[in-house]
Nucleic acid binder design. Structure first.
Lengths: 251, 251
DNA sequence: CGGCCGCTTGATTCACGTCAAACATTGTGG
DNA sequence: CCACAATGTTTGACGTGAATCAAGCGGCCG
């Protein structure tokens, strides 16, 4: 099993759960969450499906380490990446209600995955209303991100669209404490970016070259360096509102 | 105040709330919902904003009659329509948690709107877990629709994209009991369709003409006739899964 | 060392956008 | 009830951003 990416992420960083940042949680809530979400952990190699469209999942998954993605595929094979999941993020709280998944969840890198039986999380949520609220908060933010992506693909130019994706991933990484100054992990290939932005890999390549020439970013050895975040945000018409960061305890 | 559209929707059809179709509700739940959602009703003329991006809303809104839309606008004015809201649909249950709206809600036609004070709905939801679940169901379905739209704009061609939108609106209308055989209300202008699909109004026009020539649909006097739904669904690569209709009592 | 995966480059094509004007429909006010 | 204004649709000529096709390059991994 390929575990290269795991070790390559450096010293095992302190786990920072996105959920736990929700402002209304007590320290006790956060402890409970952490133990529940890390009780049962498995490692999935890069580029594998975690759960597929049509499945009836019995577990809620958390990405503890590595990146994952949601995607949908049309009947003829065209694929759209719908969002990326960063370390500390919950994949599918919605399985409490929806019977079948309408999209596929896959790993981008090797992923350490926390698995929580549906029933166990349900009990936690019933015992702790604040945790229920935290769960819905992350789900609603995911919805807001999805709306922003629709807007991005529908209205932004290729250049703006890629810039916007870079802004989002950098800001989310930073919020999760995963950046080092102006640099963050960036395990996506240009084909991934193409599938996420609705363009071809070739055009992604040419657009990124242009961004490099413009001195906005640097992308190499699975790392992204943002030279001037303000300028990147400006060209991307990026506005952090949609991430609803104001619910975080650290806001 | 212009109430033309209201009267033009024919005999005041029996109100069919989307929420009430949720399978786990009892008759008592449905009654409670209906009285709560229709206690306070106002009429908003066509093409007005209901709540705007950045607002901190105090009411949950239901569309009782007419069509509404969600949209986002970029700093330079480009606008993306994110979804359409049909009669019987809840606009924004998410205000329980999110502090500010990240998108704007506007009317397409004249809309009869039910307004429920946040607090009142919160109490209802606490008293009736099944209603809470119904609420989240509609919110999760809205999320699934958003993912499908992202996919549509990202992967489908102009022709497929419009066909897909037509399928969705027809199927959702039919589910809400708003179709008459193969015909449904269709108050969108070609500019609306353009803003929703990320294309220009001119190209929408040419594409629709092509669909008419292909005998798929007819669009006139604010009505859409679908001549062959199966064929329309086939060319659109339409799959109803994402609407999660299997939670409906009438499924 | 060799194979594979991801990146880069070039030539060409095409789906869709832009600009501009005319036409059709609908609702309004005199 | 007609006219006209506003809104929505259609048409044409032309431009362009991004797709397509095809080939070569480079670094990483077994």
């Amino acid at each position: 099993m390929d575990v290269g990416s795991v070790s390559s992420s450096g010293t095992p960083t302190a786990l920072s759960l996105n959920l736990s940042a929700f402002g209304k949680l007590t320290a006790a809530d956060r402890d409970l969450l952490k133990t529940t979400l890390t009780k049962r952990v498995r490692t999935v190699p890069a580029r594998r499906d975690i759960v597929r469209e049509g499945d009836r999942p019995h577990f809620v998954n958390v990405v503890l380490e590595g990146w994952a993605q949601r995607s949908k595929q049309l009947a003829d094979g065209r694929r759209q990446i719908l969002s990326f999941l960063l370390p500390g993020e919950l994949c599918d709280p919605n399985i409490f209600i929806l019977k079948r998944l309408d999209h596929t969840l896959s790993t981008v890198t090797t992923v350490r995955l926390g698995e929580v039986p549906k029933q166990e999380l349900r009990e936690l949520v019933q015992a702790r209303p604040a945790i229920a609220e935290a769960l819905w908060w992350t789900e609603l933010v995911a919805g807001a991100i999805q709306r922003e992506w629709t807007t991005s693909i529908g209205q932004r130019t290729a250049y703006e669209r890629i810039a916007h994706l870079f802004c989002e991933l950098f800001v989310r990484s930073r919020t999760a404490g995963l950046t080092d100054a102006n640099t963050c992990e960036f395990p996506l290939t240009q084909s991934d970016i193409a599938d996420a932005t609705g363009m071809t890999q070739v055009h992604v390549n040419r657009t990124i070259q242009e961004m490099r020439r413009d001195g906005l970013i640097d992308l190499r050895s699975r790392q992204m360096t943002v030279h001037d975040l303000d300028r990147l945000m400006a060209v991307a018409l990026f506005n952090t509102n949609y991430l609803h960061l104001d619910h975080r305890a650290d806001a």
